[in-house]
Design a protein around this nucleic acid. Sequence first.
DNA 1: GTGGTCTAGACCACT
DNA 2: GTGGTCTAGACCACA
Lengths: 131, 131, 131, 131
Amino acid sequence: MTSTIGDQDFSISLDPANGAPMYRQIIQQIEYAVLSGRAKTGDRLPTIRSLAVDLKINPNTIVRAYGELEIRGIVETRTGSGTYISGKMPDPEDGERERRIQEVLGRFQREMRDLGVAKSELVGLVSSMEE
Amino acid sequence: MTSTIGDQDFSISLDPANGAPMYRQIIQQIEYAVLSGRAKTGDRLPTIRSLAVDLKINPNTIVRAYGELEIRGIVETRTGSGTYISGKMPDPEDGERERRIQEVLGRFQREMRDLGVAKSELVGLVSSMEE
Amino acid sequence: MTSTIGDQDFSISLDPANGAPMYRQIIQQIEYAVLSGRAKTGDRLPTIRSLAVDLKINPNTIVRAYGELEIRGIVETRTGSGTYISGKMPDPEDGERERRIQEVLGRFQREMRDLGVAKSELVGLVSSMEE
Amino acid sequence: MTSTIGDQDFSISLDPANGAPMYRQIIQQIEYAVLSGRAKTGDRLPTIRSLAVDLKINPNTIVRAYGELEIRGIVETRTGSGTYISGKMPDPEDGERERRIQEVLGRFQREMRDLGVAKSELVGLVSSMEE
DNA sequence: GTGGTCTAGACCACT
DNA sequence: GTGGTCTAGACCACA
């Protein structure tokens, strides 16, 4: 159920079991692509219609996601042309990416602790993760 | 913003950055406590009102979480007395806990990948996590 | 006071004299509709708001009923679209329906006994029930 | 789980699956006993303590039930002596009993209809009820 | 328009 | 004081 789209740099996938709403998953993944350097200023995002088809969701959901990304200044829409990664990075400093990483790490740590997985076991688990 | 409550075994915390609704976060943490063995049959949960105060949220949200846990048979309510871990564990077999661990691991892996963190870096990150 | 809604297959009514809470009465009637075969997989339930208006109760009460039916796997919600009878019947075997019938019968018998209605009179009463 | 108490005329039983709160079930059964003529003016009810023990519930619940019955004028408490059926019947006319019977009958009819039991089958079901 | 989450606050049932 | 039900109303996510 993890439909994937775009060229290798812009693959977006939805996880229905994730709990997070689809539009937010899309936003997050594009933000992350920018923060990680995989998406660079001027790169063109998939069209709303194609992304909707590929992810099998309503185009309005993509509109929402792109719209919110534009409000945040992360993307730019040029009517009739498409949606592009903006010149303004979400947070020019790498601090933002660092912050996100720590956030994800913290959530991971907390959930594993709640599940009774000792810190010493975590390293083993992570290093044995399949691709 | 991660207010914490209860004795050391039943600490429940909300993460506002976590997209999941609050009532679901509460459910998850209690399920995890049971799966990990930290919460045992007969243990008393915090009262609805006290948890609401500690988490600074509306009591109805706790009511909802506890109610859903009861439907799932994880918890038992004795009106006028309190809410208790039920005799029926969610899945006595350890399979359920394993499944949840894999789920968390998968989500972690995916989010880190999206943030551009290489698998090789993950082990380092995890092993250097602060307590 | 028995407001009725929907098309002939999905009429739901509340009985204020019935001690059971409203949300439970709603759940029961939908369960029964499924068990009796009147409601079939894929059938659409009344919308939350329309049912609330028809029954003259707060929408949240319907939300709760539908939510619990979803947890039990009887119903499936597609946000933005509606609520539908799920593919998973509560108990495909007819055993469940039989069990419910016996339950209702037992309660009836007990209440009539308490009211001093002899068993011999019961048959007469039942056969003379108006439509 | 249907603990029973008292002499043959005042047997009270609780049905936990009934949904109705316990104190209401107690009230109902005493009312019905009066309406059906099984309980007559001056008859002594079980003591609060003995009934609580027999039904395995909290004495306060009995206190509530008896208290409400007193408010309605159905019973009378004589301090230090016990609780007795009052001289004032709830509704001297037999109309009240009739009304209750119709109420029970109506609920039965509705639930059976909801379960898809035809009226023609009902008579058979009722006449074949075990004691 | 359809469902989902949450708050504030009331009142009830029960220990 | 503990849990249960309900209302009124706000705001969000989605089609």
